[in-house]
Amino acid sequence: MSNPADLPVETTPLLEVTDLVKDFPIRSKGAIRRTVGMVQAVNGVSLHINRGETLGLVGESGSGKSTIARCILRLIEPTSGSVRFKGQELAGLSRRQLQAMRRNMQIVYQDPMASLDPRMTVSAIISEPLRIHRTTGDIGARVGELLELVGLRPEHGNRYPHEFSGGQRQRIGIARALALAPDLIILDEPVSALDVSIQAGVLNLLEDLQRQLGLTYLFVAHDLSVVRHISDRVAVMYLGRIVETGTGPEVYETPAHPYTQALLSAVPIPDPKLEKRRRRIVLEGDAPNPASPPSGCRFRTRCWKAELICTEYDPELLDLGIGHPVACHFPTPDDLMGSEQG
């Protein structure tokens, strides 16, 4: 999973996102649809992913994590900010240049049933990227290879997606993403729609593929346990902002942002004895409406540490001596698990 030591460390990250902003207009109803407001889905996000590593992007619904994934692929047009892939700026690329770029960046979706065309056979689905990019060579053989790579049988190729179970469908989606041997795969909630017993198989497959093929992952998910399991580094999002980022152990073992702490303490652990002993931070209320975010720190309306400064100044994502960047005026690292693990 992590960068093997014998590989030279590259200076430029594979993907670098700087100050990404995405606003969605809210339009009024009626014949003349005026823009009456803006939802700031992503509000100034910077992140980078090094070759061969997995960055976990975690957040609740409405945090903007999926929007970031789509902005990187330019499936939606970012409002502003820069996305650099292998050092090349993607903003402003023509449609044709973008198409060529897409060979190197692929996406796997949450719901494999929805992301596979129901009218196409599995072979047609997996070979579509090869045909689009006019790959030379035996396409049939390549499809067979890809099916085996993801743990399906080559003869499954002439069936339709609905004939497969959820886990198998997700494997088909992964095979399609692998077809062009991309450098980066964006995984958008790839196991959230699967039953737990199936989830594990897909997660293991993703880990194996990364090791075998040297893939780089951006893993977008709401499930903190899954993100912890698969990621080398983690970024926690709240209402369009990254509030805390660092390596897995930094974020999970010494979370310093109150939101990260609350989030971690809210995840139930399948161990009744541990659950009864755990300290729990239950947040009040809901996340605010992204169309009218609070002034200052966006988390202050639910934060127990909030003071006047939090309503006035938006904290920047900085390392204030914690060891990793946290966007909070009063960061205090807190080991939520360690003391009770015994």
């Binding site: 692929l73 060529a100 979706y109 719901d111 929805a114 990227p129 399609r176």
Partner: peptide, 19 residues
């Protein structure tokens, strides 16, 4: 989503319409 998936693969408009 499978339409977005096709876009993400780099499919052209013609391909998306006819396939």
């Amino acid at each position: 989503e499978y339409i977005e998936a096709a876009e993400a693969l780099g499919a052209s408009n013609t391909r998306i319409i006819f396939r």
